[in-house]
């Protein structure tokens, strides 16, 4: 246009829009909520109790409760209790660690899907995938959500570490409260689940035999409430 005053106005508004969180409507709502929250807090100490089994944490605001729930109880592996930041990462984890056919299939074709959801590539091994993540997607070599499921001896079972060389792991307290929650926690199932099952048929597309699967507590296709722990489900053949 003949003038760029409009651009100046746009940038002024960006810079001066401090202290807001998602538009005026939301701000008002939050203020109202804050007031209500303060009143409620005066009446009863802890307003929000996390309903997830074995959690029992309390929260003073609905926001912090919502955030906690989303972080810890939305995408959780039923077998090893690890929680994941996204459905894609949980699916990948379930497939690779709790699908007994996975190893067999991975021998025949590339099965390790890229952790970047928009990337369709698959790899022969998690090592190849890791190289791809680092090379193509510029992921850090120690990408936190690509760590193998460890056997019983887990870091999180050890007392809070003073070791500054491993400062990335910050899950101590949650473990104290609910040992199963930590992302770094190893599987609660035995390692046998992860090992290839020697006696199984090696047709990659056949649905897994139910008896040999770790049994999820809840049917895999069903989610309760805001989301629930998910167990293994067959990803290979869905009609």
């Amino acid at each position: 246009p003949p003038s760029q005053d409009g651009d100046v106005e746009r940038h002024l508004s960006l810079q001066l829009q401090g202290a807001l969180s998602g538009g005026p409507a939301r701000e008002e709502a939050e203020e109202a909520e804050e007031e209500a929250g303060a009143a409620a807090a005066a009446a009863a100490a802890a307003a929000f109790l996390c309903p997830a089994a074995g959690c029992g944490q309390t929260f003073s605001t609905s926001e912090s409760y919502e955030h906690h729930y989303a972080l810890l109880h939305r995408e959780v592996c039923a077998s090893c209790k690890r929680s994941f930041p996204s459905a894609h990462l949980l699916d990948t984890h379930l497939l690779e660690w709790h699908d007994s056919l996975f190893r067999l299939m991975a021998e025949r074709r590339d099965m390790y899907q890229c952790l970047v959801e928009s990337c369709a590539e698959k790899f022969k091994s998690s090592k190849d995938r890791k190289d791809h993540l680092i090379k193509v997607h510029q992921y850090p070599a120690d990408f936190r959500f690509d760590k193998p499921v460890k056997s019983k001896s887990t870091k999180t079972m050890t007392p809070p570490s003073r070791d500054h060389s491993v400062p990335m792991d910050v899950n101590i307290e949650a473990c104290e409260r609910s040992p199963g929650d930590a992302m770094e926690t190893g599987p609660s199932e035995t390692a046998a689940d992860q090992a290839p099952q020697p006696g199984m048929e090696n047709t990659p597309v056949s649905p897994p035999s139910v008896t040999q699967l770790p049994r999820p507590r809840i049917p895999p296709s069903i989610c309760f409430g805001q989301g629930a722990t998910r167990g293994f489900r067959s990803r290979k053949k869905r009609v």
Partner: peptide, 12 residues
């Protein structure tokens, strides 16, 4: 990664 999650406050 967290943008694919469920926590609205964190996503924002």
């Amino acid at each position: 990664t967290y943008l694919s999650g469920h926590s609205t406050a964190l996503m924002e």
